[in-house]
Structure formats: structure tokens, C-alpha cells
Design a protein around this nucleic acid. Structure first.
Lengths: 336, 336
DNA sequence: ATAATTGAAAAAAACGTTTCCATAATATAT
DNA sequence: ATATATTATGGAAACGTTTTTTTCAATTAT
């Protein structure tokens, strides 16, 4: 069926090594020889077998992308797009690891590493006690985390790209507080993810700094999807002493809350203020449009992938890179 | 650093072939020999090199997933999740191809095939004149399309999994027509994608069957994102003789239209009716919730992947599989 | 004119497996 | 007890490359 380097060598009447040199355009091959080989390659429509190249030459060029099922669905397509762009340029394949549970994910990643399938790994989220991160660090395998590593020891050692979630959330909260809000609720994502905890911490710290005691009855888990956050918002709003503002740790959750507000007849921002996070497309379609925090998702993907290649290629690179965000004031908040 | 089969053989004091047999748990190996080998494997923490296995044994087990950048963003995470589930079970890797433009996509796919990296391909969308599909068919390479192939010759030959977009859209339109609507607008996705054209065709056919002439001034391209469909809806609604209903070819576009309606002070469904497609989470959060067509995304992913494995394994399988959908009447339509 | 130097190309080893074939040992049938 | 079939194992070829080493010829220096 398909030809191999031997066929080419035979047809061009040269040795296998010469063909190999031509393929990898090594310097020391006579122009006429090169032409013969190139002609043979063309005639046979020969394409080097990448698997064989990998065995012979060193390694299969690919990076793994680990995306927990529960990681923020909204940005998966975007982040994959920008990772692919960089990887393509480098001639690397992208191997997806989309495991159902944490143990399977760990197992699959280790197997990919041990069996020499991937040269590096991008983790699209980090969890509070992330076994995978610990293990990868132990192995001294090239990997970059999108987000923050909580573990104190690893935090300064594991390469990561992130936005400053704590500061961003504090800024959003300070904005609400400056508008006179004192009863501000928080709808957050499941707290086993570091990013969720960080954003909640921003909420808490802002309270502390402003001297407002945190009322934990105003803090609710908004789960993974829009309906869970809708339900959380309903619960928060139906209390005797409801909040005057809701801070959601992502726009999807904010939209869930938005629905609850409309349903309860609350006008935004007249009756209640609302803030999201990430600046997804969806944040522009609510009426009024959502005040939120813009996260440069494509840029994150680009930087995280570039950092990984730095590691793979043995270049030095910053352990941690923080990208700028922008607080975007639209129309969903009002002075009390 | 890491051990190979030779090391294991030496430690267990057996031949390389015996180790190989144990790894691939061949039947004919004495229990005690097997134990020796297994012990050695454990002691050395040996993991077979997948690349070498691929060269020796036949092929690198992986499937490629082709996702055009402009393919429907909403379901990428979901479909990847279900593809991963099936591929994992089979022990196949998933290699992503997320190319920017059509030519690059074609090139990359052919290269992956020629260089023996992938055993099969899943195309997450098909275009009107899809060079990739034609080429893959010519090569007789295992691949499955999620969606429909328009080309008459290929339609009965290329393996595909789909929902019945034409019928589904007709059902939705008939519903609107049965409610007395006659001026129904359509906001569709870019028509180079087959699915967009099909859904628009459903809109047109329903008109014809009901004897209502299609007014093409009511048909608008809603582009790729929520804002473009918002703008399209604004244009449609600001005409002298505006529609009484809008049919959007997906929920994202419906939400864009929803925003336009709210902004123009139109009450849904009192002043105008609205229908979406796909039953994304988001369709439940509008007020009123969106009448839409439920598409079983996870199921589509499962079936498309299973079909691909049937092809890879040489089993016979239906050329085309159509999955059931469900028209979901919520609250966004009203009798005229 | 001869030895040393260079350069292109061939030959061969290596990468880490699987698999085919041969061999020795064991079990079964006559 | 002998011939035959079966089984467990080892040896070696094969997979398709890259890379190192060797060979040979041509050039340069002495």
C-alpha cells in the first residue's frame, strides 16, 4: 500500500540514510542526489511514518491537555483553540484527556507519560489537593497549570498561568461596597476547585477589609450548571433578610441568578445588583448587560502553551505568569 | 532512567519474547514464569513504550477529532466528553485537530493519516462542499461525520450520525404556523455549514407545505456569536412589517434575538414568539423559558464514536444513523 | 608523489517492541 | 516403548525510522 523509506532508497538508487538525510534536510547531501531522492519521494508519494520517526529519533511530539469534566465548560472551546494554534506551529499533536473521575485522570496521565506518548501536559484547572499535580512535580515532568496551585510548597515550584482572581474579586466587591452595598451574596462554583475558592476568598477578604462581617448564610454553592445557580439564587433571595447584591463567580452563575431575580419580580439594578466573572458572550445579552470581569481566555491559552514549550525545550521561564484582566462596568449594579 | 523490556527480561531471567507475551497476556506462558516476569516488571516499574509498541505491533491507537473553529461552540465540551468516554474504553487516544482555516485542516488531517498517527477520524461538522470529506472518502479511510453530507454521491456512502434537522425544524415551524403565525423570521448560522442549510430548508419547506410564501427579507444570517444574532434580530424587528415570530437555528441565536426583543420593548410571547434549537442549558433561563428542540448531544458523541470503532474494526454498521430529538414546548410561543 | 584532510554516501547499529520460527520439553496416542 | 502432537520458551527478524560509524573518493598540503 503505502511506501516506506526503503522503497524510496531503492527507486532513487541511494541508501536509506541518504533518504533520511534528505527528509530531515541535512546539509551534506549533493544537489543532484537530493534531486533524485526528492523525485522518488514524489513519485511514490512517500510520507515518513511519524511513529517510526518517533522511535528512531527520540520522541512523539505531542502535548496532553487535561480537562476535568467539571472544569469551567464555558471556556473549553476557546482555550483549546488557542492551545491548538501554538501547538500546531511547533508541530506538536494535542492529545485530549477528558476523564470522568480524578483517579482515572491521574492514571491516564501517568500512563501517557510513562509510555512516552506526551512530552508535556497542560492542566486546565487545579483542585485543592491535586494528586496529579503532586505526582507530576515528583516526576519532574514538564507541565503547566492554568490557575493556581494551593499547596504552599508547590505554589512556587509548579509552573502556572493565571489571572489574579483574588484581586479581581476584591475589586468587584469593593465596587459593590462603594455603591453602599452591605448585604452581598456570593454564588460560587464547587470549592474543590482552587479557582472557586480563590474567588470566594476575594469576596471574604473584601468584606474584612471594609469591616463588614461575612454573613455565611449569604454564601451558596452554585454547582456546575445554570440551573443549580438559579436554585441557589432563589434560596438566597427568598430569605427574610435578602441581599441587595449578588456576586457570582462566573457569568453562567450570574445568568442563573438573573433568572431567579426576574422570576421573583426583582428589577436589576433597581432592586438588586449583580456581578459576574469571565465576560462570556452571554454577559452582554442580559438586560441590563452584566457588570463582570474580563478574562483573556485566548491569551491564557496562548501563554500557558508557550510556557509549556519553554519547559519542554529546556528554556527558563517564569514559574508563574499573571495576565491582566479588566473590570467591566455595565449596567447591572446600582448605588443603594 | 526508565526501564525497557530488555531490562525486565534480564531481571526475570527470561527472553524478551516471554516478557512481551506476559505484557500482552498471551495464553501460553507458565504461571511460574509469568510470576517471575510480573515481579520484575513491578520491581523495575516498567511500562511498555507505546510508540515502540505501535511500531512493532501495528499501529498507534488513536482517533482524530476535527472541530472547525466555527463549528457550534455550545456543544464542543459535551461532545468531546462523550467521545472521550468511548475512546477511553477502547484504549484509544484522542488527537485534536482544531485548525483555523479549511486548507490547514485538510492538510493536517491528511498528514496525520499518512504518517500513521490516527486510525480514524470524527468530523464534528460538515460543510457544503467539503474537500476533506471527499478526500477521506477517496482514501477509503475510516471516518464518521457528525451531521449530513450534502453531496449526492457521498451522502449514501459516507458514514454519518445525525438528527433529522429538516423534520425537526419543520415541526417547529408547523407549530408556529398552527398557532396562526404567518410572518415568521429565521435567524440562521452561516450557510456554508450543512446543518445551517438544512435547518433553513426546514423553515422553507414548512412554509411551502403550508402554502405560505417565503419572504426572504425575513431570513437573516445570525453569524457565529450571540451579538451577531442580536444585531440580525434588531434589523428584522425594526422593519415596517416585522415578523410575529422568530425561528432561530440554535438557542444561542435565540438568546441573541431575545435580547433584541426585550430591548425593543417586545413582550415574549405576547408580542412575539421565539423558538430555538438544541436545548442548551441557556434555553431554560430566559423568561419565559425557550421553546426549543432537544438534541441528544452526549448520545450523538457516543454513537458517532462507536460507529467509528465499528469501521476501524471492520465491522459492518449502518451508513447513516439518525437519533431521536424532542420538540420541547416551553413558554416562548403564543397563538396569534 | 605521497600523506593528510575533507566530504559524500553507504553500511550498520540503535530505538523498544511484536511476531514468526525453531527448539526443547512435555504430554498423548499407538 | 516409540512415534506424534502439544506446549513453553528462546532466538532472531521485522516494524520504519534516526544516528553513528565506516568506507571510499576527491581534494589539499607537504
Amino acid at each position: 500500500m503505502s511506501s516506506n523509506i526503503k522503497d524510496v532508497a531503492k527507486l532513487a538508487n541511494v541508501s536509506i540514510s541518504t533518504v533520511s538525510r534528505v527528509i530531515n534536510n541535512a546539509s551534506n547531501v549533493q544537489p543532484e542526489t537530493k534531486k533524485k531522492v526528492l523525485d522518488a519521494i514524489k513519485k511514490l508519494n512517500f510520507k515518513p511514518n511519524k511513529i517510526a520517526q518517533s522511535l528512531g529519533g527520540g520522541s512523539f511530539h505531542s502535548i496532553g491537555v487535561v480537562s476535568s469534566r467539571s472544569s469551567n465548560q464555558g471556556f473549553v472551546p476557546l482555550i483549546l483553540q488557542s492551545i491548538a494554534e501554538v501547538a500546531d506551529e511547533k508541530g506538536y499533536e494535542i492529545i485530549l484527556n477528558n476523564s470522568a473521575d480524578e483517579m482515572k485522570e491521574l492514571e491516564k496521565c501517568l500512563s501517557m507519560i510513562e509510555s512516552k506518548v506526551v512530552q508535556g501536559l497542560i492542566l486546565l484547572s487545579s483542585r485543592i489537593n491535586d494528586l496529579l499535580i503532586e505526582k507530576l512535580y515528583e516526576l519532574n515532568f514538564p507541565f503547566v497549570v492554568l490557575g493556581k496551585v494551593l499547596n504552599e510548597y508547590l505554589a512556587n515550584r509548579v509552573y502556572s498561568v493565571d489571572t489574579d482572581n483574588l484581586a479581581d474579586c476584591k475589586e468587584a466587591l469593593n465596587y459593590l461596597i462603594s455603591l453602599g452595598h452591605k448585604r452581598i451574596a456570593c454564588i460560587h462554583a464547587p470549592l474543590n476547585y482552587v479557582v472557586s475558592k480563590e474567588r470566594l476568598d476575594g469576596y471574604i477578604e473584601a468584606h474584612k477589609e471594609a469591616g463588614i462581617p461575612v454573613d455565611y448564610s449569604l454564601v451558596a454553592n452554585g454547582g456546575y450548571d445554570i440551573n443549580q445557580s438559579y436554585e441557589a439564587a432563589i434560596r438566597l433571595l427568598k430569605t427574610p433578610n435578602p441581599p441587595t447584591a449578588i456576586f457570582a463567580t462566573d457569568d453562567i452563575k450570574a445568568v442563573g441568578a438573573y433568572k431567579a431575580m426576574l422570576e421573583l419580580g426583582l428589577k436589576i439594578p433597581e432592586d438588586i445588583s449583580l456581578i459576574g466573572h469571565n465576560n462570556y458572550d452571554i454577559s452582554q445579552i442580559t438586560t441590563p448587560p452584566l457588570t463582570t470581569i474580563d478574562v483573556p481566555i485566548l491569551q491564557l491559552g496562548k501563554v500557558v502553551t508557550e510556557k509549556l514549550f519553554d519547559l519542554i525545550e529546556g528554556k527558563t521561564t517564569d514559574v508563574r505568569t499573571i495576565l491582566d484582566t479588566k473590570f467591566i462596568v455595565r449596567g447591572s449594579c446600582k448605588r443603594l
